[in-house]
Design a binder for these strands. Structure first.
Length: 196
DNA sequence: CCCTGATTCGC
DNA sequence: GCGAATCAGG
């Protein structure tokens, strides 16, 4: 992937908005977060002291023998923080939409759980567990969700009291274990309800 | 362990 | 210029 003007645009925008390198990388696609960071630096907009306030130190062990003993990595003089004011046209981002369409559960997970299904096929176990897990939920907002956070919605999206479980998920799954159990029926608990 | 950004250096 | 590998902090 080449850093087209377009992509750089997105990069700058997102970085300016405080997006993380990995998020930007995912958004752009075709690049790793390293690539993004590298580009950010090359663009000279790395102003974001997050780690290593201390000077760089790299005693790389067995892969980067640097004979030199004078690591003068000083090239950036004092310059303004915002050297690049946004020009016009800065809202052409169709890919910026929040994407969280993992599909929503049928039941509401916030309040009194046992919802619609009167003849609930969902095991009480699962529901109970989910209800309890919600109490321990991290209560994340949309932007805080990642592939590894449970995306189980809790509360009413129309109100202030809306958040996502946010607990850890298992590889690939959109929800944490408890919510996964409720969302996806193992079909074990739903075997024939007529045979009896 | 997960994440974050920072730096270096071979390409 | 690019970005993987590596490093370091949280």
């Amino acid at each position: 992937m080449a850093w087209t003007d377009d992509r750089v645009e997105v990069l700058k925008k997102m970085w300016g908005e405080g997006k993380s390198a990995s998020q930007i990388a995912k958004e752009l696609g075709g690049v790793t977060r390293n690539a993004v960071i590298g580009k950010v630096h090359r663009l000279g907009l790395s102003n974001r002291a997050t780690t290593t306030k201390a000077p760089a130190k790299k005693p790389a062990a067995a892969a980067k023998p640097k004979a030199a003993s004078a690591p003068k990595t000083k090239a950036a003089p004092a310059s303004s923080n915002k050297p690049a004011p946004k020009v016009a046209a800065e809202t052409p981002l169709p890919i910026n939409a929040v994407n969280i369409p993992p599909r929503k559960p049928i039941i509401k997970a916030g309040q009194p759980l046992p919802p619609q299904p009167s003849t609930n096929e969902i095991s009480e176990e699962a529901l109970t567990k989910a209800a309890e897990v919600v109490k321990k939920a991290k209560k994340l907002h949309l932007m805080e969700l990642t592939e590894k956070t449970c995306k189980w919605p809790v509360g009413d999206p129309a109100t202030d009291d809306f958040w996502f479980c946010g607990l850890g998920t298992e590889t690939g799954k959109p929800y944490c274990e408890a919510h996964n159990a409720v969302a996806f029926q193992p079909m074990s608990a739903r075997r024939d309800r007529r045979s009896r």
